[in-house]
């Protein structure tokens, strides 16, 4: 399946992937509203790890046998059989955080928005053609592509 891959050699630690992710997942889909009105700062589903000079944007790998799906007690976390996208049906989620502990990459983040606990994870912007983090990366440090069989 097509996934987002980070290219650390070109990641420049600007964190715009996070900003774009937040906007793409906001109600308004407008940068200023998302941050100022919806107060979504810090709710990105991709996040940049930084260890100067290296930085990388990490996000869900959409595993074949996703532990988060296996661990999800409510059945909210699913892997779409057609697209392979692993995503959380937020209305079902009870915020138990089992998925957070299940994820071997540590890319599901326990977040509380308006008192509601939600595991934030990349859903590959399934409503868009291409993930916002990839589209908005100013240095093509993120690519969205098919890389064939996984190890």
């Amino acid at each position: 399946m097509k996934k987002v891959y980070a290219r650390p050699a070109y990641c420049m630690n600007c964190h715009l992937c996070e900003v774009n992710c937040i906007v793409a997942h906001s109600k308004s889909r407008n940068l200023l509203k998302a941050f100022k009105k919806e107060k979504l700062r810090g709710t990105a589903r991709v996040f940049v790890e930084e260890r100067k000079p290296i930085s990388i944007a990490v996000q869900c790998r959409h595993c074949n046998d996703p532990r988060c799906v296996a661990g999800c007690i409510s059945g909210a976390m699913v892997k779409d059989t057609e697209t392979g996208i692993v995503y959380c049906q937020e209305e079902k989620c009870v915020g138990c955080w089992t998925c957070v502990v299940s994820c071997p990459y540590g890319v599901i983040r326990p977040i509380e928005i308006d008192g509601r606990k939600l595991p934030l994870k990349c859903d590959l912007c399934k409503e868009y053609e291409e993930p916002a983090c990839v589209v908005g990366c100013p240095n093509k440090a993120l690519v969205f592509e098919e890389r064939g069989a996984e190890v």
Binding site: M12, N13, C14, H15, L16, E18, V19, L31, L32, F35, K36, R41
Partner: peptide, 10 residues
């Protein structure tokens, strides 16, 4: 300003 800190980092 959304305080994303991109300016600080760049």
């Amino acid at each position: 300003c959304i305080k994303c800190l991109a300016c600080v980092r760049q």
